[in-house]
């Protein structure tokens, strides 16, 4: 059986272990996150949503996905 390399990352403060070949775009789509309603940061750098299919997830990446909620 072919061994799949895993990387350890943090999404919204929670630890996750994912396939190393995955792009940011597929990470979002597997989590069913609509790009239109969110903004994304990788290691505190805002990601241009048009570029997300080119961004590969690396070991130790800290990803933040935010949206609008009710607030004063």
């Amino acid at each position: 059986m072919k061994k799949i390399n895993k990387v350890k990352i943090k999404i919204n403060g929670r630890k996750r272990s994912i396939n190393s070949k995955i792009s940011l775009k597929s990470l979002l789509s597997t989590n069913k996150i609509s790009l239109k309603k969110v903004a994304i940061e990788v290691n505190e750098k805002i990601i241009n949503k048009k570029m997300i299919n080119k961004i590969k997830i690396k070991n130790g990446d800290k990803i933040e996905i935010v949206h609008f909620i009710g607030g004063g």
Binding site: E64, H67, F68, G71
Partner: peptide, 29 residues
């Protein structure tokens, strides 16, 4: 209307979203 920016709850996708109730095309966020 004022809105806050917070983390998406990626572990509970059934949670309703503000944008589903208040259309940003009709109301200025």
């Amino acid at each position: 209307v004022t809105v806050a920016v917070r983390r998406v709850n990626i572990f509970d996708k059934k949670k309703p979203l503000l944008m589903d109730y208040i259309d940003p095309k009709k109301i200025t966020y």
